[in-house]
Design a protein around this nucleic acid. Structure first.
Lengths: 146, 146
DNA sequence: TTTAATTCCTACTAAAAGAGTAGGATTTAT
DNA sequence: ATAAATCCTACTCTTTTAGTAGGAATTAAA
């Protein structure tokens, strides 16, 4: 029941981009140094974010990445689901569609999984990237060392 | 961000015990046939439940397992945490104790993880085994085939 | 008192997922 | 031209997951 580093690193990368690529662009190297994440690995994570339309890139020297969305228009849920897949605790709950599990008609645990799933999604869909950026900037203001 | 089979099978085993070992005891074989879970594997899962004091056993022929707690006094959260470990989405949040992560002072994502964690635990702590048993018996009543 | 049914215990294993490494191709500002 | 960057994809090492296997100990019933 853990998030992988993809989700964790990816969210940090998005916050980093929001703060440090406000009206320019920043390189992978740049982010990876600040966030202590391997360059190569971060590259793969940002590729996913780009594929989802959350960041844009410029190639070549002095190139880099910046956000492709407004921070108020993207939620933590959008970011985590892009990186982790759905946030359901088990695969047998699909809300509108068919359910995979053959026992589903008779299986009562699915109600538990559904409620967990709903509560997780409710939390992450109600935190925007902007919320985190503001909180981060508040923290940074008190720690001028970094 | 998935539960393992331990948590899923274990919860089903607890429901099965609550329903089928009301005033007797039932064997692993019995449960495993009903629930379609490998006998050997289920044995290991039930060993964990026993170690946590949720089930008791009688050895020897005609032996078996039964619940060691009242269904109203045990929550889904108790069961899942015993089988899966804590239900936090990342390891860097410990509520009262020290936090592992060295960046925690400066890291804003921990607020997200804390909120997810709280919401998951809130859900599972507010569903008792009794709730699931009642729901299951309601379903079974409409499906006399099984 | 033997036998069969059962829990108990622990070691092993195959497959998948997680977390990167590695390195070359392409693009572009200087 | 060159250096700095993204882009792309294959490989690898480690850990976790989901079991399998099999023998020892216990006990009700024949």
């Amino acid at each position: 029941m853990k998030l992988s580093t993809k989700g964790r690193y990816g969210l940090r990368a998005m916050i980093d981009l929001a703060i440090n690529a406000k009206d320019s662009q920043i390189s992978i190297k740049n982010i990876s140094e600040r966030q202590n994440i391997s360059e190569n690995y971060l590259e793969q994570i940002i590729a996913i974010l780009k594929k989802n339309g959350f960041v844009k890139s410029c190639r070549g020297a002095q190139g880099g990445y910046s956000l492709n969305v407004e921070t108020v228009n993207i939620s933590v849920g959008d970011i985590l689901r892009a990186l982790e897949g759905d946030l359901n605790p088990v695969d047998c709950i699909t809300v509108n569609d068919e359910v995979q599990c053959s026992e589903s008609e008779l299986c009562v645990t699915k109600y538990v999984w559904k409620r967990i799933s709903d509560s997780i999604n409710d939390v992450v869909d109600n935190i925007t990237l902007e919320d985190l950026v503001q909180e981060q900037e508040r923290i940074d203001a008190c720690n001028p060392s970094k």
